[in-house]
């Protein structure tokens, strides 16, 4: 018997609220839904700076980083997070998702930075969970 049969893998996610917006209902709903899907969810709490998000993502070694931004500051905040992840060699194998109100013209820009997907209003929870299951990095 090999020990790998005992392997207990679980998808780890950081659900992060970054910047000054105080709307965390969406983040709460996602955190709860991820938990019910069997993921381990670390919730950052409100008003976090990009460096805090990077610190948490690196230390917790999450598979998925879900950033919730409803303030419109995504073009400022997301690049800071992405370069922070790169600094700690964590960018390559972290699935970064952005949820919130992001205009179509900004989506491409975020994806060019390494964001895997941008989920706007109206995205179903099931869709998001399915995306995470399919795209969580193999390590």
């Amino acid at each position: 018997m090999t020990m790998s049969e005992q392997e207990q893998r679980s998808i780890r996610c950081l659900v992060a609220k970054v910047g000054l917006d105080g709307h965390d209902r969406g983040a709460h709903v996602i955190a709860r839904a991820f938990r019910d899907a069997g993921f381990e969810v670390i919730y950052s709490g409100l008003h976090k700076a990009p460096e805090e998000i990077v610190q948490a993502a690196v230390q917790e070694d999450v598979d998925v980083l879900g950033i919730s931004i409803l303030s419109g500051a995504h073009n400022t905040l997301v690049p800071k997070i992405m370069s922070g992840l790169e600094e700690y060699d964590a960018k390559e194998d972290t699935l970064v998702l952005v949820g919130g109100v992001v205009p179509d013209e900004d989506k491409q820009q975020l994806e060019d930075l390494g964001v895997a997907a941008v989920f706007g209003p109206g995205t179903s929870i099931e869709e998001t969970i399915e995306f995470v299951r399919e795209n969580a990095p193999e390590r």
């Binding site: 069997g38 993921f39 381990e40 460096e51």
Partner: peptide, 27 residues
Amino acid sequence: TGGAVLGDRIRMASTVGDMDVFVRSMS
């Protein structure tokens, strides 16, 4: 489900940005 919400990290804000405090949540 085996899922978990690990919330202790929220309370640990005093040492944010200081990588020499390594906080790890485990379920």
